[in-house]
Amino acid sequence: MRIVVLGSTGSIGTQTLDVVRWRGWKVVGLVAGRRVERLREQVEEFAPEAVYSTAPREAWADLPAHAAASAEEVAAWEADAVVAAIPGLAGLGPVRAAVRAGRRVALANKESMVAAGPLLWAEARAHGATFVPVDSEHSALFQALHGEHSEDVAELILTASGGPFRGGPPDLSGVTPEQALAHPRWDMGPKVTIDSATLMNKGLEVLEAHALFGVPLERIRVVVHPQSYVHSMVRFRDGQIKALLGPTDMRLAIQYALTYPERAPSPLVDAPLEPLLEFHPPDLERFPALRLAYAAGERGGTAPAVLNAANEVAVEAFLSRRIRFTDIARIVERVLDKTPVEPLTWENLYAADAWARRATEELL
């Protein structure tokens, strides 16, 4: 199998390369951020045909591979599958390029589906591309829905670990970036980890599930499940529930997205069968970001893109200590309240994204 990895030096990218090692596949394209030394190591090991980095070109143009002009060029490289793991809306352009090339897209970039889901599906139908989700929650839903009829689905239930502040403190205004980055379960990049701490990540996952599976927002629910063994559940209209349980290791979801409809063996240790499974409703007073995501989804059009853009800017401001942890959701809500929602087109999407980023910076 020929694989392109977008975001190869990040958390999902490096775990994808672990899966490539398990399976002995060929990596034909790598796209990285500014971690040039890690990219060099990957190029040396996997010998891709094409490579691109957002670092200054002189820092990586000497690598022994075709120096692509853009991430989009690598995303459209001849391949069997493209793993889309560039975080934020920066990943949308390469995802769209892979779709236009008719590829299987193993989608880890939830922001693309949140902001542009209907547009991406239209292009996928036009070009014969397919999406298989990589997020563990959406992979679980995808597997639970396989072979089922859409009219039999009563609700989708996304599980959340609760993040680092599930048990306190009651007042989150004094939380530091270091505390927010100390996730109890997952090793992720800083932006996703902060989103997990605010529960905005779960809000984006709700919107992604809505876009991926076409289930109305009012039938997508979030429950807090601290053990994280149940990755998500589907309740059917006869009252029965399908749940996917497994080790808390993203490599399983990555491998499944690339081998579907087959299942390949893995060297991972099986999840224990004995843990006590807890489920709790999320606290929307302490974590209002989840409520905002539902509100943006209900408004539709460009509102999810505005939510995503405002959140990206606010999270970066928190990480650079310009605002408090609790200001993230407040600022996103103010930007959402100010935005005029337009119909979703490619032009309107990028205009709304740019407007929201400017508006958020002004509020900062």
Rank of each mutant, 00 (worst) to 15 (best):
A264I: 05
E44I: 02
E123T: 05
R219C: 02
S70H: 05
L63V: 04
A317W: 07
R96T: 12
K110R: 02
D270Q: 15
E262F: 11
R40Q: 14
A305C: 10
S320R: 15
P216N: 03
D337R: 15
H66G: 02
E312R: 02
R104P: 03
I323R: 00
G24C: 03
L158T: 10
A351N: 13
F131M: 07
V134E: 01
W355K: 04
V19Q: 05
R235L: 09
V153D: 03
V222G: 04
V74I: 06
L363V: 13
A32N: 07
T16K: 08
L181T: 01
S112H: 06
H127E: 03
P164N: 02
E298H: 13
G189D: 06
E278D: 11
V224P: 01
P275F: 07
L244N: 09
G91E: 08
V134H: 01
G33P: 04
S228C: 12
A126F: 09
P272A: 09
E316R: 15
W77M: 11
A329C: 05
W77T: 12
E312I: 08
G91N: 10
R185V: 14
L273K: 08
L349P: 02
E148H: 13
L307A: 12
E316L: 14
V4C: 06
L89I: 15
Q15A: 10
W25S: 09
V175I: 15
A257K: 08
G203A: 00
S161R: 05
A69C: 06
G117W: 06
H210I: 02
M1V: 13
L336R: 01
S196P: 06
A65F: 03
L364V: 12
E298A: 13
A116Y: 06
L217S: 00
R185S: 14
V206E: 01
V335E: 10
T345Y: 02
R299W: 10
L30S: 06
L292R: 00
R166A: 11
E262I: 02
A359Q: 14
A305K: 10
A84N: 04
L181I: 09
A253E: 05
D152H: 13
A32D: 00
N201M: 02
